[in-house]
Amino acid sequence: MENKVSIEAPNLLTAKQRSFIFDNLRGLAIWCIPISHFTRVGGEFLHDSLGGVVYITINVFVMQLFMFLSGYFSKKVDRARESAFKTFMLPYLTFTLIFYIFRYCYFGHANLDFLKPPFALWFLFAVFFYRYYLKDLVKIKHLLSISIGIYLITGLLPMDTDYLALGRTVSYFPFFLMGYYCTSEKLKSLQCLKKWQCIPLLLLLIGVSYGLAYYVKVPVAFYLLKTTAADIGIAWYTDIVMRAIVLILAAAWTILLLNLIPDKKNYLTYIGMNTMPIYIFHLFIRYIVKDYGFPSPNWTVYYLWVFGAASLCVVIFSSPPIAKVYDKTLEKLYDGWLVLKKRMIDEQTK
């Protein structure tokens, strides 16, 4: 997988040593992302509904889990820096341009600004930043504690949260660091729950999501951690408290999934090894779903469409033909970048 552009860092384990739990976790997480997006834009979304419970449940842990895994596989900081451009910045630049062309053709207008990551591409930009500067950042004492402190007050800072994806880049950094500082021994110690012990925790977490959806009227935009308290119209202290709650929920969901997800090769493993095409290409479908919505004669049919369409995106966009084309295209672009870079260096040394 080292030569494969993925939503995750290149694998640090050989095939013989490979632990499939990480691929399975990625597989589950990437499956959740189109479910989350289609739930929100499918046409029948209400905060206090099943859709609200699903949306909140996913968004209190899914990107946090991706960040945790990204950090966990970034322990070799020199290698993390070397691979940051190929794995994250190159896809970001490529698909920012492609999405601009798509939006222009689809809507008749669009803005191109590489300093304001469009929609879900913020993830690529943020992880590039983390991995490229990790070697320098880890020299700061108490970095994790500092990052958590900043995370809690990010919603109060007067800033353009879209510029450089600052809102999310700052907010998700602690979860990346948690993965970076988590050792294999610590990870094993977290996997201490029996399957039957996971059931109460699972019910509790779902119950919390139910409570947040039906009784805590914080706009769902908050759960994306991308904007300020003032922008979404909540009190500063509410923002801090809710960020603390999300931090706890993300940690609890991560621990739960580490105990529930099997360490065996299965279909989730395959999905987890081909996350990037799913992450990128389902966004085109999201635009269409947002415009046309899903049929909704009743809630059963509606949610069958939501989960069915999301699952179809996962199956199709992770299929060998699409995954192979994606990987080959990014490889060609990277090879072209290396040639261009060499020419520029040669010109400077003449």
Results as ranks from 00 to 15, higher is better:
residue 310 A to Q: 03
residue 343 R to P: 00
residue 345 I to K: 15
residue 338 L to S: 05
residue 173 F to G: 09
residue 95 F to I: 04
residue 44 E to S: 15
residue 334 Y to T: 06
residue 252 A to Q: 03
residue 300 T to H: 11
residue 39 T to Q: 12
residue 195 K to N: 07
residue 79 R to D: 14
residue 280 I to P: 00
residue 228 T to E: 06
residue 68 F to H: 00
residue 330 L to T: 05
residue 298 N to T: 11
residue 211 G to I: 07
residue 304 L to Y: 07
residue 293 G to Q: 04
residue 162 D to G: 04
residue 65 L to I: 01
residue 266 N to W: 11
residue 260 L to Y: 04
residue 285 I to H: 13
residue 35 I to N: 01
residue 261 I to D: 06
residue 348 Q to P: 04
residue 225 L to A: 00
residue 188 K to Q: 12
residue 66 F to I: 13
residue 241 V to C: 13
residue 240 I to L: 12
residue 43 G to M: 10
residue 184 S to F: 13
residue 211 G to H: 05
residue 30 I to E: 06
residue 18 R to H: 15
residue 329 T to G: 09
residue 72 Y to H: 15
residue 60 V to T: 14
residue 301 V to P: 11
residue 223 Y to R: 05
residue 56 I to R: 05
residue 4 K to F: 14
residue 264 K to S: 14
residue 152 L to I: 02
residue 82 E to A: 15
residue 43 G to D: 07
residue 187 L to A: 09
residue 110 A to K: 11
residue 28 L to S: 06
residue 205 L to T: 01
residue 269 T to I: 04
residue 152 L to Y: 07
residue 297 P to K: 12
residue 34 P to E: 04
residue 219 P to N: 03
residue 45 F to Y: 15
residue 30 I to T: 07
residue 284 F to N: 12
residue 296 S to E: 13
residue 151 Y to Q: 10
residue 236 W to D: 12
residue 195 K to W: 09
residue 73 F to I: 12
residue 201 L to H: 09
residue 191 Q to N: 08
residue 25 L to K: 13
residue 175 F to T: 02
residue 213 A to R: 04
residue 251 A to S: 11
residue 41 V to S: 11
residue 256 L to P: 00
residue 6 S to V: 04
residue 340 L to C: 13
residue 272 G to P: 07
residue 122 W to N: 10
residue 218 V to C: 08
residue 315 V to R: 12
residue 294 F to G: 02
residue 154 T to W: 03
residue 93 L to A: 14
residue 61 F to D: 04
residue 168 R to I: 00
residue 241 V to M: 15
residue 14 T to I: 05
residue 348 Q to H: 12
residue 251 A to V: 13
residue 336 G to F: 02
residue 250 A to M: 00
residue 57 T to V: 06
residue 43 G to L: 09
residue 206 I to F: 09
residue 118 P to S: 11
residue 300 T to E: 12
residue 188 K to V: 02
residue 156 L to Q: 05
residue 149 G to A: 10
residue 111 N to P: 00
residue 274 N to M: 08
residue 213 A to K: 03
residue 229 A to H: 06
residue 20 F to S: 13
residue 95 F to E: 02
residue 42 G to E: 01
residue 320 P to W: 10
residue 297 P to S: 13
residue 120 A to C: 07
residue 217 K to P: 01
residue 45 F to I: 02
residue 215 Y to N: 09
residue 156 L to N: 05
residue 26 R to W: 01
residue 127 V to F: 07
residue 155 G to V: 06
residue 243 R to H: 01
residue 241 V to Y: 13
residue 257 L to A: 07
residue 108 G to L: 05
residue 81 R to M: 13
residue 248 I to H: 12
residue 252 A to V: 04
residue 109 H to V: 10
residue 350 K to A: 13
residue 65 L to K: 01
residue 27 G to C: 06
residue 112 L to R: 08
residue 348 Q to G: 15
residue 121 L to D: 03
residue 17 Q to T: 14
residue 253 W to I: 04
residue 272 G to E: 07
